[in-house]
Amino acid sequence: MKRSAVFACIAAFAFSLAGVAHAARPLKSVGVAVSDLANPYFVAIGKGALDAAKKVGGDKVKVTTVSSKYDLNTQVGQIENFIANKVDILIVNASDPKGIAPVLQKARAAGIVVVAVDVGADNADATVMSDNTMAGTESCKRIVERLHGKGNVVIVNGPPVTAVIARVAGCKQAFAGTGIRIVSDNQDAKGSLDGGMEVMTNLLIAHRRIDAVFAINDPSAIGAELAVKQAGRPDVQMVASVDGAPDAEAALRAKNSIFAVTTAQDPYKMATLAVDIGYGIMNGKRPANPVVLIPTPAITKQNVLAYKGWASH
């Protein structure tokens, strides 16, 4: 064989190897671990992950969504199952951002890309979440406006995850330097309607005057409003929240509701971005910034009719 022909063969072989090296790894399976599938927010995350995965991997891609009910041990077991089933990407809404770290490290060691959504998680490759500080600030700004900078406010708190902590911090930023007095901020309503109702009922008994309520998510805010109505407390002028959930849309449209503002998250977009980022990492493309924050605009009685909510996808 002539030397030129040998070089041509070597070049062709090298080129074919380069093509193999750069061929995108196919997406075959995605595991989605969320906190509570009774909450439409997490249902939207599951749907976003499914739609994005099928866009990338086709109709044969397998997407499994599980719910931990905010229990760390349950979530660890679910992630162990995903590891055993060798999913390509794990989308995780951590029930405990630090407690989840060892099993996430195990997942990554097994070659699984881990993307945290909604809240941060130690040992995730990347995180996609709402700008939760903005969410708390924008909601509580409306409280300051309604109360003209003076009054008693309760914060109906939630599980101690990064998103909730940031929302409360953002709310307190809005109150800083005003005459707003926070009379309670440490009651965990567990992010649920029943929890919001129970916590608010107790707060109404404990405090003779409450001018407004900030709840860390819409379910607990809806529960808080129900408690106010049942107690017949006209002193409570408004409830403010975070999520932009369908129930919050309905409450904002209702004429007799004191539900006045929610700052809108986009769980569907959050999940689609998480899958896209995870697929990029699978193929050697890490994002310049491992934390992506999605803006959270305020939805009020004045602009709710123009709001395209979670169900619009």
Rank of each mutant, 00 (worst) to 15 (best):
I89Y: 04
G280R: 07
I45T: 06
V213T: 08
I299L: 11
T127Y: 12
D247F: 01
G196C: 13
T300M: 10
V63H: 10
L193H: 09
N289R: 11
I112W: 08
V76C: 02
G170F: 07
S68N: 04
P97Q: 03
P219L: 11
T64D: 11
V228F: 07
N283V: 13
N157P: 12
V292W: 02
L204C: 10
A174K: 12
I222R: 14
R142S: 06
S35V: 13
K2G: 12
A221D: 11
R208V: 00
K69Y: 00
P297W: 01
K2P: 07
S68W: 04
I258E: 04
V292N: 09
A271R: 07
Q302H: 07
K172D: 07
A101G: 15
K60N: 14
I91H: 04
G136D: 05
Q265W: 04
R142N: 08
A298Q: 07
P26N: 03
P219T: 07
I100R: 03
V242I: 08
D125M: 00
L37C: 01
A49C: 05
K62T: 11
D71T: 08
I294C: 10
D122H: 00
V87Y: 06
A206D: 13
A189K: 06
T64V: 14
A240G: 05
A176D: 11
L193M: 14
N152D: 14
V228C: 09
H207F: 15
A84F: 02
A206V: 05
K54N: 02
A250R: 14
H148C: 01
A21H: 05
F259I: 13
F42V: 06
L203G: 01
T133M: 12
G19N: 09
F82E: 10
A11V: 08
G151K: 03
A224K: 06
A135L: 04
V275N: 12
N152T: 10
A49K: 12
S257P: 11
E225C: 02
P234F: 06
P246F: 06
D185G: 11
S139Y: 02
G179F: 01
R25Y: 06
S4L: 07
H22M: 09
L72V: 05
A306L: 13
Q78N: 13
F175D: 06
I100S: 02
I79P: 14
V32W: 12
E198W: 00
A94F: 10
I155H: 08
V66A: 05
V87I: 13
R25D: 06
L90P: 13
M200E: 07
E249C: 00
A166C: 10
I79M: 11
T178S: 12
